[in-house]
């Protein structure tokens, strides 16, 4: 498990049951994350991985699953280096 995956799982564990969550599961459709907590997750991603989100990043495809979040963070970190 990558450090990003581990950190995001750790965060989600505070909001929902992550034991049955696979890396490709849709965390919203699966009811793992209520969209009201999306803001909290965005705050977490920004502060934990030192990235700044801009308007183009607000695309559900970037946050739909653990794998999508990891890909997005990796790409964002490369862009901001």
């Amino acid at each position: 498990m990558s450090k990003i995956n581990e950190a995001v799982r750790g965060f989600l564990a505070g909001l929902c049951d992550v034991d049955s969550l696979s890396d490709d599961d849709d965390i919203f459709a699966g009811g793992f994350v209520n969209s009201l907590y999306l803001v909290q997750m965005l705050n977490f991603i920004q502060s934990e991985f030192s990235i700044e989100l801009d308007e183009d990043d607000y695309d559900m495809a970037n946050f739909r699953s653990l794998n999508a979040i990891e890909t997005f963070i990796n790409e964002k970190q490369k862009d901001q280096q």
Binding site: S35, Y58, M60
Partner: peptide, 10 residues
């Protein structure tokens, strides 16, 4: 974007 409406609200 679509899907973020409740996040804006929140």
């Amino acid at each position: 974007r679509p899907g973020f409406g409740l996040a804006v609200c929140s």
